[in-house]
């Protein structure tokens, strides 16, 4: 019975991770899609210069960050997928969620300032979990840029 305990714990964590992680991801995607619709009118402008012909405008530095963690089930699955090689789809969704969340938070900051465009967007990843992050599988993204606020004429 004594040596069965770690196995049971592993099983419980796997099932818990599968259920809770699945629900968390589904809810997060739903909320991302909903907020992306609301903030779709703030344009992300690639490149260093704001669009031409805006007239007089004001600029504000905006940024957003997100730390999204993985669940136990996906971590185990990722280790297995890594062993086999090829695409690690569970990591792809994690990175995508973190990036989209960071962009959304940046847009929300821009919205509070009445920004219409965000120029020269940069991304940076942090490493809060340090060495642990390699095992734990969490992604930390900072998105930042310059919001352009046209002055009412």
């Amino acid at each position: 019975m004594d040596n069965l305990f770690p196995l049971i714990l592993f099983g419980v964590l796997l099932v818990m991770g599968f259920i809770c992680g699945g629900i968390a991801e589904k809810c997060h995607y739903a909320s991302i899609r909903e907020r992306e619709k609301q903030l779709a009118d703030i344009l992300l402008v690639p490149g260093k210069q704001p669009p031409e012909g805006l007239g007089e405008c004001r600029t504000v530095f905006v940024c957003g960050s997100a730390v999204i963690g993985m669940d136990y089930f996906k971590m185990t699955l990722a280790a297995f997928m890594n062993f086999l090689g090829g695409r690690i789809s569970v990591y792809e969704t994690l990175v995508e969620r973190a990036r989209r969340e960071a962009i959304l938070r940046m847009k929300e900051t821009a919205r509070r300032e009445d920004g219409r465009y965000i120029c020269n967007i940069k991304f940076s990843t942090a490493n809060v979990m340090g060495q642990q992050a390699k095992k734990a599988g969490c992604v930390e993204v900072i998105a930042y840029g310059t919001a352009i606020i046209p002055r009412p004429s």
Partner: peptide
């Protein structure tokens, strides 16, 4: 929280 997945709010705040 990392066991069950989802956003690690404490770390987002820290960042």
């Amino acid at each position: 929280k990392n066991m069950v997945g989802g956003e690690l709010k404490g770390y987002t705040e820290l960042l």
